Computed example of a mutant assay.
Amino acid sequence: MNLKYRDFLIRDWKPDDRYAAANAIASILAEYGLGWEPKEADRDVVEVEKFYLEAGGEFWTIERQGKLVGTSAYYPVLRGEKAVEIRKMYLLPEARGQGLGGCLLKRLEGAIAARGFKTIWIETATVLKEATQLYERRGYQPETGVETLRCDRVYVKYL
């Protein structure tokens, strides 16, 4: 998959993205005072093939002029009928404020619906204010049952 949004390229994961994706996510987490956890919450970035591709999900990278500036992904979860969790939706500062987050969320929802999933879950942290505002604007409802230690919010949307 290759999608364009303005001067960004949204594309499928390639194994040689691993280092750049990990560095970008670690940098964004640090910006918000959150830690990079390669053996816990971020293990899925270290093992994208196992957690996403082999599990029936997708992991996308976002590039601008050949530089990885963001990620977004989802995989199936056992949280209701035909459920997925959107994960690793992160953008470096230079990719923010241009509508890219909304575009990514819309594209993810479309891909998820096209594959027959019915429920979307998202876990996040309150400090990620832009993310929580985006999810709430796009119809995600606060829910209970946070499963990731560094997160303190969970949202759900039924398709």
Rank of each mutant, 00 (worst) to 15 (best):
G110K: 14
I62E: 03
I112Q: 07
R79G: 03
L92R: 10
T126Q: 13
L128I: 02
R107P: 01
W36G: 04
Q133P: 00
A73V: 01
G66R: 03
F59H: 01
K129Y: 03
R79N: 11
K50R: 15
V77L: 09
A131C: 04
G110I: 04
I122Y: 01
C103E: 12
L128E: 04
G57E: 04
A114C: 08
L92Y: 03
W121M: 10
R107K: 15
A73N: 01
P38Q: 01
K50M: 05
R43H: 07
E63D: 12
G57H: 07
M89D: 03
E49H: 02
I86S: 00
A83E: 08
Q133D: 07
R64S: 11
T71S: 14
K67P: 02
L108P: 02
D44N: 12
I120N: 08
I86Y: 00
K129H: 10
V69A: 09
A113C: 13
T61G: 14
Q98S: 06
A83M: 11
F51L: 06
Q65N: 14
A95S: 08
I86D: 00
F59Y: 15
F51S: 13
A111Y: 08
F51Y: 15
Y135K: 02
K39P: 00
V45G: 00
K39N: 13
D44T: 03
S72L: 06
I120G: 08
T71M: 00
A55N: 14
A73G: 02
E58H: 14
T124H: 02
S72G: 09
R43A: 10
D42Y: 03
Y74C: 02
V46L: 14
D44F: 04
V46I: 15
G99M: 07
T124Y: 00
W60Y: 15
R96E: 12
G66A: 03
T126C: 01
Y90P: 07
Y52D: 06
L105Y: 09
A131W: 05
R107M: 13
T119V: 15
Y52T: 09
D42I: 00
K82T: 05
S72P: 00
I86M: 05
T71D: 02
K39D: 13
A73H: 00
E37T: 04
R64M: 04
L108N: 07
E49Y: 07
Y52E: 12
E123T: 08
T126L: 05
V69P: 12
G66S: 06
I112D: 11
Q98I: 05
A114N: 13
L78R: 14
E54V: 07
E54P: 03
L128Y: 01
E40L: 12
R115S: 14
D44G: 04
W36I: 04
W121F: 15
L134R: 09
V48C: 09
Q65M: 08
